[in-house]
Design a protein around this nucleic acid. Structure first.
Lengths: 334, 334
DNA sequence: CTGAAAGCGCTTACAG
DNA sequence: CTGAAAGCGCTTACAG
């Protein structure tokens, strides 16, 4: 690889001058500038960004931590971060932590050791304390889908509770009175918050949600099927099925359809997230839209700004509320 | 951040010694080693991987280029690369090129400038010449899903032609004689190769595929719907619908279902790729499995080995053939 | 406008 | 077993 030295020698100028023309730096004579430029072109010089990053100790890459890139929700998240970074010439390091404390920590520490100056973390299993510790090490650290006390201004999160309240409110307004809920069995706070939302809204309407009408399973397609299966096997009767996410919703719908239960005539179903395939399902899934693209962009912006020690644009929203997308999986109940 | 110098000073040894204990290097006295280690722990020293990479000029990260991380197929691909890299402590840079020549080149050049020593590229739009040129600049460059003449040993590809032949062969054996094909309208070679496979197999069986039985659209869910719609509107009759990929297949199935056409009773449908949601569709989609996880791992292994100038493990397979996954979207035609 | 020199945080011959 | 020194490819005061 040809280096700045080679160019300096070939152009018969100093390294400093070469560096200045590379960076369109200040005050280099137009003649010399053109000359150096020509030599660089001839020799096919490419600046070593790694070296530059090292010496300037500045901002060239942003780390992203997701539990699992295969998850379409996470892919969407990563996509929007990458898109924003690409537009400003930032490389993105993507790593996954698989919802495992050890792995997530290793991944973050590796990012830290690579001296990324910004990172956007989707981490649900690391403790608040550890996150606080990491945030001190990396001023550009931002959390998505999580609210850490003491780090509020570097968190971008969703009001999960409100999300499920809106779902239940809607189903209630459609005449439903018999509810069931299938929840994720992951030991993180989202399932708990969403369940709380469901319960509090139901309580407000004096509708009971017995424990037997709540089933837990992994938050995937199969989990959704398992969960409704156990609900049905347990004799629970319901006209409205609220689910933790779209994957479970579709799994549950498919299971019921396979059993000859008609959706939405027999059971109305509502998902959560509005991932790509919600609309591809049959019937098309009514769901809460998680504004992940806006949130991802907000998180990346905050990360970049705080990495640069800038004051953060106060208009960037940090708390989001999902919105109802009505499709075909819910019907009015008289 | 505490540096190696700080440690050297605090431990009252040379930088060289510190460096040796960091790297578990050769011959450092056990007492000194322990002492230095203790100081490092106390001061919370973390080696600067960027600096190390810079000086050793070695292998610390691998670049991945995909058209679009949102595409579940690409997400799967990226996932498997990342997993393999993670297991050996390699960071992955993920970038996307959106099937645009300019963007793809920029992305690759950026990767190059960052001095990644290996990269796995899913590129369909850059010319063979350019790829050859890049491959000289980066010995660890590997192509996936593409075969570049002169670069065969650093390509991992699928026999697309054979894939569609197998699809048609199967449908033929199930008694189908009236075929239609919906293809991607992207200007890359895969659609062409897959179509060739369809045609050649049909020709072998003396079945005609008139141009009116072929429709082109973008290779997504909506495209699938559009394509069948135009086929049906054009008056084409078929009992078997062969599709470019699962997304189009599901889009087409949903469109037909919405029209009251029963799948598979009226029309049998076969996809291609076997992405996650093929099994979640109703009816479950019969499709060709693209062995993307094996291929991704093979590509990453080759990239890593050739980046290290190792001789490449000859047992690593480079050409793959997809295999038929029978589910519910095909029925026998008497 | 231009250059000589120092320095970023590491590793690695080389010498002892 | 240990240290002094050079060097990786850049940038950036500093001096002129």
């Amino acid at each position: 690889m040809v280096t700045i030295k080679d160019i300096a020698k070939a152009a018969n100028v100093s390294q400093a001058t070469v560096s200045r023309v590379i960076n369109n730096g200040p005050k280099v004579g137009p003649v010399k500038r053109a000359h150096v430029q020509r030599i660089m072109d001839e020799l096919g010089y490419r600046p070593n960004l790694a070296a530059r990053a090292f010496v300037t100790n500045k901002f060239t890459s942003l780390g992203v931590l997701v539990p699992e890139i295969l998850d379409p929700f996470m892919a969407t998240f990563a996509h929007h971060i990458e898109k924003l970074c690409q537009s400003i010439g930032l490389q993105t390091f993507i790593t996954s932590g698989h919802n495992d404390v050890i792995k997530e920590k290793l991944a973050i520490e590796n990012l830290l050791d690579h001296r990324v100056s910004a990172m956007v973390l989707h981490s649900k299993v690391i403790s608040d304390e550890d996150l606080l510790k990491y945030s001190e090490l990396c001023p550009g650290l931002v959390l998505i889908n999580r609210l850490v006390p003491g780090l509020e201004d570097r968190c971008v999160w969703l009001d999960n509770r409100m999300g499920s309240e809106l779902v239940v409110e809607y189903l209630f307004s459609m005449g439903h009175r018999k509810f069931a809920y299938i929840n994720s069995d992951f030991d993180i706070d989202d399932p708990q918050l969403r369940l709380e939302g469901v319960k509090s809204c139901l309580t407000r309407h004096n509708v009971k949600l017995p424990d037997s009408a709540i089933a837990y399973a992994p938050p995937f397609h199969e989990g959704g099927a398992q969960a409704v299966e156990s609900l049905i096997a347990g004799g629970t009767k319901f006209t409205a099925l609220v689910t933790y996410n779209d994957a479970m919703a579709v799994g549950a719908m498919n299971f019921m359809l396979d059993q000859g239960i008609h959706i939405p005539r027999d059971v109305s179903v509502v998902g959560f997230d509005d991932v790509v395939y919600a609309r591809d399902a049959r019937p098309q899934l009514t769901t809460m839209r998680y504004p992940i693209s806006m949130m991802a962009q907000a998180a990346a912006s905050i990360a970049i700004q705080s990495a640069q020690q800038q004051t953060i644009d106060p208009t960037i929203q940090r708390k989001y509320t999902p919105s109802l997308i009505r499709r075909q999986s819910v019907i009015e109940r008289m």
